[in-house]
């Protein structure tokens, strides 16, 4: 990777509801005051950043995955396609081959192994990406079509769009899906630094520990932001100390933040404590960029 390529910062959390969206949107808006910034919402099952980023929609693009389509004329009904499909996405029902798009992993096995080319690969809409722009802030979000079950192909696609279209923007913030399963692994792929957002409660700690385990296994450089500090107990802080994980900032628990947030507003300009936390995070980001 050359030093000209964007610095990619992932914002993740072991569990949902810790403040990942709050941090992503406010950090993006804050950073864009100083330099062009891209925010990417990769939580494709439940994208929410757009509710807070009040930017005009520029354009929308459909996103496709590759799936086989049955060509009845060419088919000799040998049934090989249904036998090779590990996902039961291709099923032979008598004289009909049915393809179930949402189950298909796009491995191409049925299509390429078909002796008569009766399953050519075509595009199938799995979701869409929306592009927003407001001053120095560029924002894109991808949303899975309801009923589509696989988030990973859309996450990968969104990654490559960010890479190709926004290569000129130096800082990319990626709001990742919650959890520790494959969507998170896909979302944090090729990122330079991961910010794990947690809250100071036993639930928060439990999920942070899982997320830390994931990041270590992936060999990621990461730090922790504690949201709603003062709300629970000190176990998260103690854990970070013990594990030598940097706590890069804390956002205090204030009812006012929750109230503003609930109405879809950004809070960094009205709440000094949030602004302070963002300043600290910005310094860390700067440092990571310089070191690269």
């Amino acid at each position: 990777m050359t030093s000209k390529s964007p610095l990619k910062i992932a914002i993740a959390s072991g569990k949902g509801g810790t403040g990942k969206t709050l941090l992503s949107t406010n950090l993006a808006a804050y950073l864009s005051q100083f330099e062009p910034t891209l925010l990417v919402d990769l939580d494709v099952e439940e994208p929410n950043d757009a509710l807070f980023i009040n930017a005009p929609l520029l354009s929308t693009a459909n996103q496709h995955k590759m799936i086989p389509v049955w060509n009845e004329q060419e088919c000799i009904l040998c049934g090989k396609c249904a036998r090779v499909c590990k996902f039961h996405a291709v099923v032979q029902l008598g004289r009909t081959i049915s393809v179930f798009n949402q189950l298909c992993h796009s491995c191409y096995a049925c299509s390429e192994l078909c002796p008569t080319n009766a399953l050519p690969i075509q595009t199938h809409k799995m979701g869409e990406t929306r592009f927003f722009e407001k001053g120095n802030l560029s924002f894109i979000e991808s949303r899975l079509v309801v009923g589509e079950e696989q988030a990973v192909p859309l996450i990968n696609k969104t990654h490559s769009i960010a890479q190709q279209k926004y290569n000129h923007i130096k800082t990319h913030l990626l709001d990742c899906p919650p959890g520790t399963s494959c969507p998170v692994v896909a979302a944090t792929k090729d990122t330079h630094y991961v910010i794990l957002v947690t809250e100071p409660t036993p639930f928060g700690l439990n999920d942070l520990a899982l997320a830390v385990e994931t990041m270590r296994q992936l060999g990621k450089d990461f730090g922790v932001v504690i949201n709603r500090e003062g709300h629970g107990n000190s176990s998260v802080k103690e854990y970070c100390q013990r594990e030598q994980i940097p706590v890069i900032a804390s956002i205090p628990f204030q009812r006012e933040i929750a109230e503003l947030y609930s109405t879809g507003q950004l809070v960094y300009s009205t709440i000094p404590a949030v602004r302070q936390a963002l300043e600290q995070i910005a310094l860390v980001i700067k440092e990571k960029g310089a070191k690269r």
């Binding site: 249904a82 590990k86 996902f87 039961h88 996405a89 099923v91 032979q92 049915s98 189950l103």
Partner: peptide
């Protein structure tokens, strides 16, 4: 016990 596509597999059986 299939990881994926239990619905379509059962549909195939129904057929």
């Amino acid at each position: 016990n299939e990881a994926h596509g239990a619905g379509t597999a059962t549909a195939q059986k129904m057929y």
